[in-house]
């Protein structure tokens, strides 16, 4: 049974057993506009909660994508290198960025759940 949590930087993280998948929310994808380039982390890279893990670029600007929780990158969505527009088309599905083996599941538990994130977005 997977569970999804959210950050105030508009990343989502879905935990399936030991492995977590990370992407950006629909809100983030709409704010960024048309994504034209994604820089993904290499497998084996260690990331910390809140640390930069990937970069997403629209026509106008580059934005950092932060790791919602610490761990080790196990894979990245290389399909985005050819089709960065997937981030806009399906940000919370096929537009995922990378997968992580979490070092501390407690960090995941502290993030916003779906309702809390919806309230957070409404407050912006």
């Amino acid at each position: 049974m997977s569970e999804v949590r959210y950050t105030d930087q508009h990343e989502w993280i879905r935990l399936d057993g030991e492995e977590a998948t990370v992407g950006i929310t629909k809100y983030a994808a709409e704010s960024l506009g048309d994504v034209v380039f994604v820089e993904l982390p290499a497998s084996g890279k260690a990331v910390t909660a809140g640390g930069g893990a990937a970069v997403v670029e629209s026509v106008k600007a580059a934005s950092d994508i932060y790791a919602p929780a610490g761990g080790t990158v196990t894979s990245a969505n290389s399909a985005l290198e050819k089709e960065p527009s997937k981030v806009n088309e399906d940000p919370e599905g096929e537009g995922w960025f990378f997968k992580l083996k979490l070092s501390d599941q407690g960090e995941f538990a502290k993030l916003m759940d779906k309702d809390a994130y919806a309230k957070f977005v409404d407050s912006l």
């Binding site: 506009g33 048309d34 034209v36 629209s58 026509v59 106008k60």
Partner: peptide, 12 residues
Amino acid sequence: PVQYPAGVLKEH
């Protein structure tokens, strides 16, 4: 206006 609903890519 920085962009309209069509978005920068389509507008360009």
